[in-house]
Nucleic acid binder design. Structure first.
Length: 372
DNA sequence: TCCTCTAACACTTTTGAATCGC
DNA sequence: AGCGATTCAAAAGTGTTAGAGG
């Protein structure tokens, strides 16, 4: 197993080992397309509505890819990862820790409906995960991502070379996430600033803003029959979960991390909320993410892209380490430990924690429950 | 009493079948 | 016949909020 150096003793990122697989010589780059919008929400404390029947995300995840091999097929996937091990509550205009997180619901992975497709397709235009829905219904049959209300999550994106969903389990993959996409799952908005921001940016909400709410106080609450099901099939539900993805072997997710581009990363700005929150108690601020982030070990490679730095497209090469259990980079938080904070100030963004316990992996597998 | 969740509501946007013209 | 553009009705999606329930 290729370990990443300890975060406190080696803040600089080690030089890249040579690529193990010749077919992965290119440098894949992933960017968050609507990162300005995400940052706007992130500065307040993003909330995502989850409903029994599934709710789309807003802002939705849209990523740009480059550096893929044009004629090689890739599968792009996305899943949700707990940002910490706490449950929250909204009290007195701010989020507070309300205890330990509830046991994780079934972990589901959403595969982009275009998958598999050649690299040229993915690089042609940004990938939108607009159709993905979030639900709090643990018995959901529609393949929506299941989350717990009042818990914090962030999306992860997985890129793997595969000619079909059935061969994913044998391919190495790259995992990327963006700190500014961390959100709190809620069944009703708590922070009015979030509501305002959503109304300002989400066209679907205009109806309420422009007069629709006036009649709410007098609305009739008689039961209405559910609307008839649309005849057309949602593309998301057309893709069934291949059996091979129900649980993937550890070795299939083995890739070697690359930590180049150090010189391109920029130090965190002094006004960055994360830096402020780093010294606060988790209960005092939404952005003060607890340090228990590293409790989760996904046994895959993950790259976190800085939220608060002026956005440099994060860039790293794809290459395999030959099938050994992989390391990962755990999500940085707004409540980063001092060492991590220092590292960020020096321009090194992500710092690895290394646990590698199989139990951790089984607790939160990447593809334990795949529906798309 | 407090907190969380659900469902109904009015409106806008999106979708896709049907139609038309070239 | 085939293709692209346009039209339009229906479906989908949105935040709000009263009420239910724990």
């Amino acid at each position: 197993m290729e370990h990443v150096s300890d975060s406190k003793s080696h803040l600089s990122i080690p030089p890249s080992p040579p690529a193990a697989d010749s077919y992965q010589q290119g440098c894949m780059r992933m960017t968050l397309e609507n990162d300005d919008l995400w940052k706007s929400f992130h500065n307040i404390g993003t909330e995502m509505i989850i409903t029994k029947h599934g709710r789309r995300m807003f802002p939705h995840c849209s990523i740009g890819l480059s550096g893929l091999q044009p004629f090689v097929n890739y599968v792009i996937m996305m899943d949700m990862v707990p940002a910490d091990s706490f449950k929250y509550k909204w009290k007195k205009e701010q989020w507070e820790v309300a205890g330990k997180a509830e046991p994780q619901p079934p972990c589901r992975t959403y595969m982009h409906p275009d998958s598999p497709a050649p690299g040229s397709h993915w690089m042609k235009q940004p990938l939108s995960f607009l159709r993905m829905k979030l639900t709090n219904n643990t018995l959901d049959q529609h393949g929506h991502i299941i989350l717990h209300s009042m818990h914090r999550y962030y999306p992860r994106f997985h890129v793997t070379q595969a000619d079909s969903p059935y061969t994913i389990c044998w391919a190495p993959f790259q995992t990327v996430s963006f700190p500014e996409t961390t959100f709190t799952a809620v069944t009703a908005y708590q922070n009015p600033r979030i509501t305002k921001l959503k109304i300002d940016h989400n066209p679907f909400a205009k109806g309420f803003r422009e007069g629709g709410t006036h009649s709410h106080s007098k609305r009739c609450r008689s039961k209405r029959s559910p609307p008839p099901k649309r005849a057309t099939l949602d593309r998301n539900t057309l893709c069934n979960s291949p059996p091979s993805l129900q649980r993937m072997p550890l070795t299939s997710q083995s890739v070697e991390a690359e930590r180049d581009q150090v010189s391109t990363r920029q130090p965190l700005k002094g006004a960055d909320l994360s830096a402020v929150a780093a010294e606060q108690d988790p209960s005092e601020s939404l952005h003060a993410e607890p340090l228990e982030l590293h409790e989760y070990d996904y046994s895959c490679e993950e790259q976190m892209v800085p939220a608060s730095v002026p956005y440099q497209p994060y860039r790293y090469p794809l290459h395999s380490n030959g099938g050994d259990a992989a390391h990962m980079v755990h999500p940085p938080s707004h409540g980063l430990a001092a060492a991590e904070h220092t590292a960020q100030q020096h321009g090194y963004y992500h710092l690895p924690h290394h646990h590698g316990h199989a139990a951790d992996w089984s607790q939160y597998p990447l593809f334990s429950y795949s529906c798309w």
